[in-house]
Amino acid sequence: MDNANRRLQAIQRSLAPGSEWRRVLVLPDNLGVDVTVPKDAQEATQVAIDNKVVGLYRTLPRSVALVISALGTPHENTADHVPKFPVLEISSPSVIYALHTVYHVQETIPIILSPSIQNGSELTEYLITLAWPADNNPSNVRAKVTQKELFLMRETFWQGAGTSGYHTRGWLRVSTALKGRAPFPYVQSFTRTDLVIASHPLRPPKPPGRGDDETVGRHLAAFHKWHNSDHVNRGWGERGPIEKHREYIKNAMADPAVQPLMMSWDGELMGYCEIVWIKENHVAPYVPEGARDYDRGLHVLVGEEKLRGTLRSTTCQRPKTKRYQYFSGSPHECPNDI
């Protein structure tokens, strides 16, 4: 009976005045994805799954290119070979699979979310977590939500569904160990800073920081005290006023290649460490035979004198930070620990 009803709905839809539909995709559960064929550029395209309209998209009167090289130089936007594509405004994430098929000759598809989407900020963060889109400024904090274009990448097609929250169907069967997150795909990216020029894979978003204003203030005060001690300054060279250290932490939190962490021993603040992606770090040139794509590094300081020593440092670093480095890495290759 259900199949008969679907066929009748398809017939009715095909006979509806002013609408021409075409099949663009069949999902893993054998449901079809159809789109309307607009009569002019101003008309929105409807997307239907199983004969039910799930969203629409429209082409905006502007085109953009995904710039991922020569960042921070006078040549950042001068390359003629980088193709520009029209920006699409989408009303639902359900239309994205259709976009990958309709625009199958494009390596990137620039989109923005329609203002009518009530949970636009949440949805943007969700899409970035899946690595569906890259934003058009790779140096930005990846969780920062703006109205800038997001670029759908062809490499992330398989990551698009099968994830809890918005989708229940997809080709990838997500392991329960990943807690509903699809494996992060390989997408080429670049970093350019005063100390680093490197190509590397796009990194997964970092977990958000935790703590109220009082906790953050306490952590900053400890960080400031430690860096003004002779013991820490000999290794880190960051002695200075608290404004300098506030800016240091702000930059570390904004850097997609650095995960800053505070260390405690029995609830007492002990030190600070940074888990880094080596390729985007200033130590990369010193790695014998060169850093690999998924090599991780660890910069550590133990600021409290009474908590220093091999026993405590080893206890903190090995089971905690190394476990985090391993499980936050990538399925593409086993990372080295540097």
Rank of each mutant, 00 (worst) to 15 (best):
residue 204 P to N: 13
residue 218 R to G: 15
residue 312 R to S: 06
residue 309 G to A: 12
residue 171 W to F: 11
residue 12 Q to G: 11
residue 62 R to I: 05
residue 238 E to M: 10
residue 138 P to C: 09
residue 164 S to T: 07
residue 287 V to W: 06
residue 121 S to E: 13
residue 325 Q to K: 09
residue 26 V to A: 03
residue 277 W to V: 03
residue 133 P to E: 11
residue 184 F to G: 04
residue 94 S to H: 08
residue 37 V to R: 11
residue 28 P to Y: 01
residue 308 R to V: 02
residue 168 T to Q: 07
residue 118 Q to D: 08
residue 26 V to G: 00
residue 200 H to T: 10
residue 268 E to C: 11
residue 51 N to E: 14
residue 333 E to S: 15
residue 235 G to Q: 03
residue 160 G to W: 07
residue 176 T to A: 13
residue 140 N to P: 02
residue 238 E to N: 03
residue 150 L to T: 00
residue 256 P to C: 10
residue 190 F to S: 15
residue 171 W to L: 10
residue 264 S to Y: 15
residue 41 A to T: 05
residue 105 V to I: 01
residue 105 V to W: 00
residue 207 P to R: 01
residue 216 V to E: 08
residue 325 Q to D: 08
residue 303 G to L: 14
residue 276 V to G: 04
residue 190 F to Q: 13
residue 326 Y to E: 11
residue 242 I to W: 00
residue 283 V to M: 03
residue 311 L to F: 13
residue 95 V to M: 03
residue 289 E to M: 11
residue 27 L to P: 02
residue 134 A to L: 15
residue 218 R to N: 15
residue 311 L to M: 11
residue 220 L to P: 00
residue 212 D to F: 00
residue 103 Y to N: 01
residue 90 I to W: 02
residue 68 I to N: 08
residue 128 I to R: 15
residue 184 F to S: 08
residue 46 Q to C: 09
residue 276 V to N: 04
residue 36 T to Q: 04
residue 127 L to A: 12
residue 280 E to D: 07
residue 77 N to W: 14
residue 190 F to A: 14
residue 198 A to L: 09
residue 334 C to G: 11
residue 258 V to P: 06
residue 272 Y to C: 05
residue 88 L to Y: 01
residue 174 V to S: 11
residue 270 M to G: 07
residue 4 A to L: 13
residue 245 H to P: 05
residue 310 T to C: 12
residue 158 W to Q: 11
residue 84 K to F: 02
residue 324 Y to C: 07
residue 45 T to D: 06
residue 61 P to Y: 10
residue 238 E to V: 02
residue 334 C to I: 15
residue 108 T to V: 05
residue 88 L to A: 03
residue 250 K to E: 01
residue 83 P to S: 03
residue 248 Y to R: 03
residue 10 A to T: 07
residue 308 R to C: 06
residue 226 W to L: 11
residue 136 N to M: 15
residue 190 F to N: 14
residue 158 W to M: 14
residue 171 W to V: 09
residue 273 C to F: 05
residue 273 C to D: 08
residue 88 L to I: 01
residue 48 A to H: 06
residue 91 S to G: 09
residue 312 R to C: 04
residue 58 R to I: 02
residue 88 L to R: 07
residue 188 Q to E: 14
residue 204 P to L: 13
residue 143 A to Y: 00
residue 262 M to E: 14
residue 261 L to E: 09
residue 178 L to W: 14
residue 106 Q to E: 06
residue 190 F to K: 11
residue 208 P to G: 04
residue 213 D to T: 11
residue 32 G to K: 10
residue 262 M to A: 13
